[in-house]
């Protein structure tokens, strides 16, 4: 399974480069860092059917770090929600693939996000609705580590702990960087685990690029009762592309032709 998922993740990474290159706009760094997380969610963990994207009983995924649309769209396209050819329309006029996810244009997007902190808040609401209905679906929310600086994240975390939403699982894409530089220089977010623990969450740590570890973390989260779970996934911003790795400058910058070709080659592409 590890090999298979790794191949999918590599394809998703190549799609990310293609999308951002084609749009000459978008966020490659934080997309590459969460590519493995989304691969495991879409190809192993979530109970979803791309042919019935709005099924009431489906698991929900809220991309709270909404700027990582290149990764989200790549994962959705590879999973069969829409043709991969459509990925090159990303961020272009009239496209369903908006700069930040839009649930009204693209079936399969469970919540429109982009303004940081709001996704996790909506995810808590969805989990709460599921609990009231006695529904069996799980709710996943992917957050950036920089996003944790938003106060709303902690309002939402407090509510999830209070309502004991054990079918809610947040994943922190902990790549250590944000637009203006390293988190701990801009605004310290650590200790992330202690923070969530003190808000009543079950905390699981793993390597966010190891698909086996991620799969195991999701299993643990699913099995845990009485508290929401957060998976703090250690990741590398720009993962897989040598010149983008650990560079805050690639947060929201598109590669030129030469850079895109080099990136795709490094990611196992033909170019």
């Amino acid at each position: 399974m590890q090999t298979e998922l790794k191949e999918v993740a590599a394809k998703i990474r190549r799609d990310i480069i293609e999308e951002v290159y084609s749009a000459q706009s978008g966020h490659p760094g934080g997309s590459l860092s969460c590519a493995d997380i989304l691969t495991v969610l879409y190809f192993k963990v979530m109970n979803i059917d791309p042919k019935d994207p709005c099924a009431p009983g489906r698991d929900r995924l809220i991309m709270s770090k909404g700027h990582a649309t290149p990764a989200l769209y790549a994962a959705m396209a590879e999973r069969g929600y829409f043709p991969t050819e459509e990925l090159t329309t990303f961020r272009k006029i009239g496209s369903r693939l908006q700069g930040h996810p839009d649930m009204e244009t693209l079936p399969g997007v469970d919540m429109s996000t982009g303004s940081l902190g709001q996704g996790i808040s909506a995810a808590v609401g969805m989990a709460l609705a599921g609990k009231l209905d006695g529904a069996s679906y799980r709710v996943y929310a992917v957050l950036g580590d920089g996003e944790l600086q938003e106060g709303l994240v902690w309002e939402a975390a407090m509510a999830a702990g209070h309502y004991k939403l054990d079918h809610l699982c947040a994943i922190v894409d902990n790549n250590g960087l944000q637009i203006d530089g390293p988190n701990d220089e801009v605004m310290t977010v650590e200790p992330i685990g202690d923070k969530f623990r003190s808000f009543g969450w079950n905390v699981i740590c793993c390597d966010g690029h190891d698909t086996d570890q991620l799969a195991e973390a999701f299993e643990k989260a699913k099995a845990f009762e009485g508290k929401p779970s957060v998976i703090i996934a250690s990741t590398v911003k720009g993962k897989g592309v040598s010149f983008m790795e650990n560079q805050a400058g690639w947060h929201g910058k598109a590669p030129n032709k030469e850079q895109a070709e080099k990136a795709e080659k490094e990611l196992g592409g033909e170019k």
């Binding site: 909506a122 808590v124 609401g125 969805m126 609705a129 309002e155 939402a156 509510a159």
Partner: peptide, 12 residues
């Protein structure tokens, strides 16, 4: 958060 959760509940 009340209104963020409200959005999530409404979409369920």
């Amino acid at each position: 958060n009340m209104l963020g959760m409200a959005a999530g509940m409404a979409h369920c």
